[in-house]
Design a protein around this nucleic acid. Structure first.
Lengths: 159, 159
DNA sequence: ATATAATGGTTGCACGTGCAAGTAATATAT
DNA sequence: ATATATTACTTGCACGTGCAACCATTATAT
């Protein structure tokens, strides 16, 4: 009864949703996205846009596929997210010099500004939500999420 | 530097995505949903349907709003999920006796079967993903997710 | 009794998404 | 050199979603 692989197992008769990690994960993510999404909407952006802003603010991905990979978003969807962002002046695109297939995407000045504002707006929400976490608990959470991520492997149709 | 509230804070200059819990959460959820979604598709159902099956299999919610609440899904969306499920013979609806406003939703026999099959199909994926977790780590994860959930409070436009 | 509010659910609309099939550019094989 | 495959991205299509406005039913106020 105490094998951890049986805890929260949807195949077991003792299964309940509150012990099912992916129900809890979905619930937390949905709520967080709902709240953050409402904040971002005031800035005229949505969550996918915000995620791309964060990614481009941190690394310099080589092409759209890599952004999609980093953002865990379908490539064709990412194409259109970048199209919207470029239309709205947040990003600039041009074919890469040594390989005209890949599209180089950079943040525009306007995009950098939006990112800064979005960070300022989301930070207080984040602080509220992380309240009560010790450093140990926080690090344990990160570690567990990374382990789950590794165990999941490469999903179909994401990169 | 070690105040946990500053760890992964999107407002800090030292911010990186791999230390941002909600990036990691989104990533894990997206991957899991992609994998599980592909499995469920073989059964002719999608993730929202699966979630409703699980909810109805566990409790007996009073009306559609309560299902939406439990499933962390918008009410109008839930209306249509139930419509689809009823069309496909997975659920049965009728107005409640003592209050004709609320819609009573029950699993049909076919719905029960689908739920059983879905459980059988998702269990091995779950076991693979939870691999390597000690009981302690598992319980710590559940606790952290519950804490995040509590800290988030009631989001806008979900129930 | 009658008007007003509140509750539970539904629908029109616009839009974002994923899949499958496409195009263009580069790499590989013959 | 030329055909074939692969890579990187794009687009047509069908569909699911959220928001806002709506309808129906019950509760409350006068």
């Amino acid at each position: 009864m105490d094998d951890p692989r049986e805890l929260g197992d949807p195949g077991r008769s003792s299964f309940t949703l509150d012990q099912y990690p992916f129900y809890l994960l979905n619930r937390v993510v949905s709520r967080y996205n709902a709240i953050i999404g409402a904040e971002l909407r005031k800035l005229g952006i949505d969550i996918p846009t915000w995620r791309v802003l964060m990614i481009l603010g941190e690394r310099a991905p080589r092409g759209i596929a890599e952004i999609a990979q980093a953002g865990v978003i379908n490539i064709s969807t990412m194409t259109r997210i970048i199209q919207r962002m470029t239309r709205d002046g947040l990003t600039e695109c041009k074919p890469l010099a040594d390989d005209a297939r890949v599209t180089e995407v950079r943040l525009s000045a306007h995009g950098e500004e939006k990112l800064a504002v979005a960070r300022a707006v989301t930070a207080p929400v984040y602080k509220r939500v992380i309240k009560g976490f010790s450093r140990r608990e926080f690090e344990q959470l990160i570690a567990s999420l990374n382990r789950l991520h590794d165990n999941l492997g490469q999903p179909p149709g994401e990169g």
